[in-house]
Design a protein around this nucleic acid. Structure first.
Lengths: 399, 399
DNA sequence: TGGTCATGGAGAAACGTATCTCCGACTCAT
DNA sequence: ATGAGTCGGAGATACGTTTCTCCATGACCA
C-alpha cells in the first residue's frame, strides 16, 4: 500500500519531487469537464460553446499545461518532424555546411518547414543506426544521395516520403529537385568562350554525387563538341587543402588553360592565389568563374564571376514538396469511414468518388523538377568592356 | 462488423493498403514468445538465453520491425532529441548560419550529439509556438540568448535542461559556455598597438547579444585606460549591406583610424574594399583584424588577421554539457524503488546511502565555462617583419 | 404528446512500447 | 520429501493523447 497505490486514478505523488508536469487529466479535473472536452477545446475541434473553450484554455494556461508531443505523435501517427539528411564525404563524420551551399539550403529548408508547422532534424546518412530509428520522422529530405544509398532505400521502403535535392541515381524517392547543371555548365563555357577563352580548364571533384558527375559530363561533352582537349583536375571536394593543391596543379600544367571554371566554393580564392603565384593577371591572362554562394567574391580583387545554385529556392522547394507528399499521403490514406458501413443507405454515393483504389500508391511516378541557376558576372570573366554577355542580375553601372 | 472489428486482438487489416508496419506484437507472435521477451531481447535487458535473443532478433529483422520512436518516448520519457535554438535578428525569420560561426558551431553540435546517440532539431526562438510544443525535447542548446528571453525561461520552467552558448544575461540556464570575449578583444587591441597602431577603430553591432556587448565594452574600457577616444561604427549585424556601409563610413571619418577591428565575419572583406576605395594600403596605412571563422582570409590580398572563436569546440562542449545534465538528471530522478517498501526488512539499509534528499535539485548552481579564443596573425596586422606577436598557429615559414 | 434535431459533452478504446510483478519449473542441498 | 534459489518468461499496467461512439437534454414542429 505504500509505494504502489495506483488506483487507476491519478498517480498519488507519493515521493515525486520533480514537478510532475500537468497532463490533460489534471486540466480536465481542474476545469470540471471531461478529457474529451479539454482536447476538443484546445485543438479547436468538436462542438463547444465559446465559453467552455475559453474557460478550458484559461485553466490549461494557469496550470502551465503542455500537451505531450510523444503521446500526440503516438496517437496521430504524425510527429511534425522531417529529417534533413546529408551524405558524408570520406572519413569526416559529417561535412554539413562544409560549403555555403549547404548552409544556405539548410537554412531555407528549416525556415520553410517552420512556416508549415514542421521542425527539421539534421541526420547525417552515416549516423549510428539507433539514432535514426529513435526519431519519429514524417519524411526526409536527402541532399544529393549517392547511387543505391541504402539509407534512402530503407526509409523509402518504410513508406516514408523522401524528397531529394539532386536527381537521384538509382535510389527510389518520392520526388526530387535539382538544378539544371548541364545547362549551367554549358552557359558558363559559352560565356568564357565569348570572352575570348581558347582553352578552358575545369576544377572538379572525385566523388560520385550528381552535381559533380553531371557538371563534369557537361564539360567533357562540350570539349568534344568544340574540339578542345579536356583540361581538368579532380580532387576530393571535402578536403580544402586538396583544393588549393589542385588549383595550383591546374595552372602549373605545360598546357595551361586560359580560363578555369571551379565547381566548388573555395576554388575561387584558391585559383586567385595560384594565379598570383604564377604571375597571371585576372582577367587578362586568366578568366575565372567558380560556383559559389558566398558574396566574398563580390569584393575580391578582382571580383570573381560566380554561379549561384540558388540554394534557398532549392531548400524551400524541397521541403514544400516533401510536406505536400506527407499531407497528401495522409489525406489519401484516410478512408472515408464517415459513419458509413453502419448505416447502409446514407454515405455510399460519395464513396466511389473519393479515392479510387489505384490512385493512392504513386500519384505520378517520380516527379522531378529542374530549377535554373544564376550566373553573376563580375570582372574575373570579362576581358574587355564590362558588358554582360549572359544575364547579370546586378545593374551594369556598379563596379 | 465490417469496418470496426477490433476484438482487442490484432487489427484485422480489413482494407488497409499501407503496409502496416510490424509492431512488437507481430514479432512476438511470429517468434512464439511474449511481448516482454521481444522487448527484453531487443534491448539487451532481462535474463534470456542467447538462443532466444538471437532468434527474436532474427524474426524482428525478417519482419523489418522498427520500434516506434513515439511509443518509446512516451513510455520512457526520453526522446533522444535536443533542440538547437538560435535567436533571430530583426525581421528575418531566421538567420541561422548567417555567419560561418553558427554553421561551424551547429555542425560540431550535431556531430557531438550524434556521437552520444542524440539528434539535433533546429528551432529558431521565433518559431511558431505550436512547433515548439509539438516536439518532445530532452533539453535545449540556446545560442546567445538575449536578456530575459521568454522562450528560455519557459523551457527552463518546464524542467528541461538548457545550456547556452554565450553567458546568459538574466535568463536561468542549467549551464553555459562562452568565449572570453573581454580577454580576446584586449589581446587584439594590444596586438594592434604593438604593431604601431595609434588610433584603433571598431566595427560593431547594434544588437544586445552577449558577444556584441562584451566586446564593445572591452573596447571602450581599453580606450579609457589608454586615453584614446573611441572610434566606432555600429550597425545591425544581420544586414550585410549595412556592414559595407558602416565600414566605408568608418574609414571616411575625418579622424580616420589607422587600425580597425571588425566584430563580424564579413567585416574583413568590407574593410578591405573600403580601404581600396580610399587608397589606403593594408597593412601600411591601415591595420586590419576581424573576427571570422572563414579561411578565405588566408588568401585575400593581403591575408587578414582573424580571431577565431573556435566554434567547434564550443559546439561540442555545449552539447556534452547538455547531455550530461540530461542523463545526470535522469539518474538523479530515479528513486531507489528496488522492491523495498513491500518487504519491511530487506533492502532498507541501502536506501539512505543512495541519494541524499538535498543533492538532486541543483548540483552546483549555474556552472559556466570560459573558453579561449585564437588569434590567427596574418599580414594585415603586421607592419614590419612577419614576426608573430601573439601566438600564431601556423608555422612561420609559410607565406 | 410524440418525434426529430441540434447542442454539449462524457466514456472508452486505441496508439506501441517498457517494465513491474509474479509464476511455473527445474536444480540442489538438507 | 521439502524448502530455497535460479532460470525463463508471461500478464498486466501505464505513459498521455486523440477520436470514435453514443447519451442526455431541451427546443421545435407537427
Amino acid at each position: 500500500m505504500t509505494a504502489a497505490a495506483n488506483h487507476h486514478g491519478r498517480r498519488t505523488t507519493t515521493r515525486t519531487r520533480r514537478l510532475e508536469r500537468a497532463g490533460i487529466r489534471d486540466v480536465a479535473a481542474a476545469a470540471g469537464v471531461s478529457i474529451t472536452t479539454v482536447s476538443d477545446a484546445l485543438n479547436g475541434k468538436g462542438r463547444l460553446p465559446d465559453e467552455t473553450r475559453t474557460k478550458v484554455r484559461e485553466v490549461a494556461e494557469r496550470l502551465g499545461y503542455r500537451p505531450s508531443a510523444a503521446a500526440r505523435t503516438l496517437r496521430t501517427g504524425r510527429s511534425g518532424l522531417i529529417g534533413l539528411t546529408v551524405t558524408t564525404y570520406g572519413q569526416e563524420p559529417f561535412t554539413f555546411t562544409e560549403f555555403a551551399y549547404f548552409a544556405e539550403m539548410a537554412r531555407a529548408a528549416t525556415s520553410a518547414a517552420l512556416n508549415r508547422g514542421y521542425a527539421l532534424v539534421v541526420l547525417p546518412a552515416s549516423s549510428r543506426h539507433d539514432v535514426w530509428s529513435n526519431v519519429a520522422l514524417d519524411g526526409t529530405v536527402v541532399i544529393d544521395p549517392s547511387d543505391h544509398d541504402p539509407m534512402v532505400a530503407d526509409l523509402y521502403r518504410q513508406g516514408l516520403p523522401v524528397v531529394s535535392d539532386g536527381k537521384p541515381g538509382n535510389c527510389p524517392v518520392t520526388a526530387w529537385v535539382d538544378n539544371d547543371h548541364h545547362a549551367a555548365v554549358l552557359g558558363i563555357l559559352e560565356h568564357l568562350a565569348q570572352a575570348g577563352a581558347r582553352r578552358i580548364g575545369l576544377l572538379t571533384g572525385t566523388s560520385t554525387d550528381t552535381y559533380t558527375r553531371l557538371s563534369t559530363e557537361a564539360y567533357l561533352g562540350w570539349c568534344r563538341s568544340v574540339g578542345q582537349e579536356p583540361l581538368y583536375e579532380a580532387y576530393p571536394a571535402h578536403d580544402p587543402c586538396a583544393g588549393a593543391v589542385a588549383a595550383d596543379r591546374l595552372l602549373a600544367r605545360p598546357d595551361r588553360p586560359d580560363a578555369v571554371y571551379g565547381l566548388f566554393d573555395p576554388n575561387g580564392t584558391d585559383l586567385l592565389a595560384a594565379a598570383r603565384r604564377y604571375h597571371l593577371r585576372v582577367p587578362d591572362d586568366l578568366l575565372l568563374v567558380c560556383c559559389s554562394e558566398s558574396d566574398v567574391y563580390a569584393t575580391t580583387e578582382p571580383p570573381i564571376t560566380t554561379l549561384s545554385l540558388k540554394p534557398r529556392r532549392i531548400g524551400t522547394t524541397v521541403v514544400n514538396l516533401l510536406i505536400d507528399a506527407i499531407e497528401g499521403q495522409a489525406s489519401a490514406n484516410r478512408v472515408p469511414t464517415g459513419q458509413a458501413a453502419n448505416d447502409s443507405a446514407s454515405a455510399d454515393p460519395t464513396v466511389p468518388d473519393q479515392g479510387g483504389p489505384d490512385q493512392t500508391p504513386a500519384d505520378q511516378s517520380v516527379s522531378g523538377q529542374l530549377m535554373p541557376t544564376e550566373l553573376i558576372v563580375r570582372r574575373s570573366s570579362q576581358r574587355r568592356s564590362p558588358r554582360t554577355t549572359v544575364a547579370a542580375p546586378r545593374p551594369p553601372g556598379e563596379t
